[in-house]
C-alpha cells in the first residue's frame, strides 16, 4: 500500500494468507486498511469478539477471515513518522494476544522490512539484510528524523525518497547513518549542494 493509494499484497507466507490479504483490498476493509489509516498497529487477538453484522468493525472481512480458519490478526504499519510504506499483517489460527516477546519481534521485523523497502527503492545493489538504524547511539535518533525532513525539502522529493537517498549516500560513502544525519542537521552536508 502506498501513499497515493496503490494497494497490493507483495508477499505472503502461504496461500491462505495471500487470499485473506487480497480479500481486504476487494472488500475495502480490514486490519491492514485500519492500520494504514490510523498509522498504528491494529491488534485483534480474537476475531470472534468483534461481533458480526452491519454494526461490527469489519462486517464483511471478519466472517470471511473466520471461514478461512483465522482467529487472530495483527497489522503493523511499515512506517517511519509520516513516511508510510505499507502494512505487515500477521495471522493466527488460534485466539489469543501476542506475547510481549512476539510483539517485540513483530516490531523489529517491521523495522527491518521498512529498511529493506527503502534500500530496494534506491537500488543500492546492497546484498544481505540491511542495517536498520544505527542511530541507537545517544542523542542521534531525533537528528536522523530531522535530517529526513531537511533532505525532503532540499531535493523536493517525498519523505520516503529522502530517507532512501540518505541511506544510499551512507552506504556509498561507507559512513554511519547517524553521522550523516548529524552532518545534514549541522548543515555541513546538503543534498542539493554537495551531491549530484
Amino acid at each position: 500500500m502506498t501513499e497515493d493509494g496503490v494497494r497490493a499484497a507483495t508477499a505472503a507466507s502461504d496461500p491462505i494468507s495471500e487470499r485473506i490479504e487480497d480479500l481486504q483490498f476487494v472488500l475495502g476493509e480490514g486490519p491492514c486498511m485500519d492500520a494504514f489509516a490510523s498509522r498504528r498497529p491494529v491488534l485483534v487477538p480474537d476475531l470472534d469478539e468483534l461481533g458480526c453484522g452491519a454494526g461490527s468493525r469489519w462486517p464483511f472481512y471478519a466472517p470471511a477471515a473466520r471461514r478461512d480458519g483465522l482467529r487472530a490478526v495483527f497489522a503493523f504499519p511499515l512506517q517511519v513518522g509520516a513516511a508510510r510504506l505499507g502494512v505487515m499483517d500477521v495471522f493466527r489460527e488460534r485466539a489469543g494476544p501476542l506475547s510481549g516477546e512476539e510483539l517485540a519481534d513483530a516490531l523489529d521485523f517491521a523495522e527491518v522490512t521498512v529498511a529493506a523497502l527503502l534500500d530496494q527503492q534506491e537500488d543500492t545493489g546492497r546484498g544481505g539484510v540491511p542495517a536498520v538504524d544505527d542511530g541507537d547511539d545517544i542523542g542521534l535518533r531525533s537528528e536522523l528524523f530531522q535530517a529526513q525532513g531537511m533532505v525532503m525539502v532540499q531535493l523536493e522529493v517525498s519523505l520516503v525518497e529522502a530517507m532512501a537517498r540518505i541511506r544510499a549516500y551512507a552506504y556509498a560513502e561507507d559512513r554511519h547513518l547517524a553521522d550523516v544525519a548529524r552532518d545534514i542537521v549541522a548543515r555541513r552536508l546538503s543534498f542539493d549542494r554537495d551531491i549530484t
Partner: peptide, 18 residues
Amino acid sequence: GALNSRVVIEQAKGAVAQ
C-alpha cells in the same frame, strides 16, 4: 501511535528548518 507521532514532529522540524 504516540511514538510515531513524535517521529513526525522531528521530521517536520527538519523540513521547516531547511
